[in-house]
Each structure stands twice: as C-alpha cells, then as structure tokens.
Amino acid sequence: MKLDLILRIGTKLLLPFILLFALYVQFHGDFGPGGGFQAGVITAGMVILYALIFGVKAAKRIAPQGLVERMVPLGVLIYAGTGIAGLWLGSNYLDYSRLARDAPYGHELGIFAVELGVLITVAGTMTAIFYAFVDRGR
C-alpha cells in the first residue's frame, strides 16, 4: 500500500474541499447554479472516492450502510412532508406560503426544506447503489 502514497495524500487533501463544494452547491443553490441533485451526487462522489482509495470498510465507518439506506426514503419523506405541512397550515399541497408569517419567507423556507430532501435521497441512493455493487464482488 506504500506505492499509492500520492493518491492517498492527494485524496486526503481533496476530500474536505469536495464536501465543502457539495455544501456550497446545496446552500448557494438559491443564488448560483446547483441544488439538491448536484450536491447529493457530489457528496456521494466524495464517499465513493474515499472508498476507492481507503477501502469500503473505512468508507462504511464514515457513511454506515444502514444510515445510507435509510436516507433513500428519508429524503422523499422530507419532501412530501413539506407539502403536507403546507396542507396542515391551510394552503395547498406543496404551497409553502404559510410556512412562515410572510409568504416569500415561507417559500424560501419551503425551497430549503425540499432541496434538503432531494440532497438526502440522491446522496443516499448513489452511495447505497455503490455499496450494493461493491458487496456483490466479495
């Protein structure tokens, strides 16, 4: 394992920046290009890169398989739950107007929650599929 020293150190240097970029894409999606889909895939890409260089066991320590597989339905539930919250507060399904006192802030909050749901489902699905493929090989 000594031969891939450059790969290991390079990956260690890159990982925090990949995660930071994913978070930037997620939370800056209101202003620049990006959103839940892109951020989710980049997050999953970080875990996959970690698994490629340091092994799947190490990756499963930072992103446990059970957690990753629970994230798949969790994101959809957050998304649909945001819609139901609107329904509860007296507006239409997926209408975020009543989530805050002023309608525009409610919409901002709703978009944030929905994008979070997308992030969780996409990151979870991509990582879970990767784990499933890797587990077949052993």
Partner: peptide
C-alpha cells in the same frame, strides 16, 4: 418577489414546479 430566491432555476424546480421535482 414571491420566493426571495434570485436563481429562477431553483425557484422553478422547487417551488413553481414542486410536483415535478417530487
């Protein structure tokens, strides 16, 4: 004005067309 989100792609995907993204 309606969503405080300047990126229209995001507001369209997550708000105006929320059903599609769901």
């Amino acid at each position: 004005k309606e969503t405080l989100v300047p990126n229209v792609v995001t507001s369209t995907l997550a708000d105006y067309r929320g059903y599609d993204t769901l």
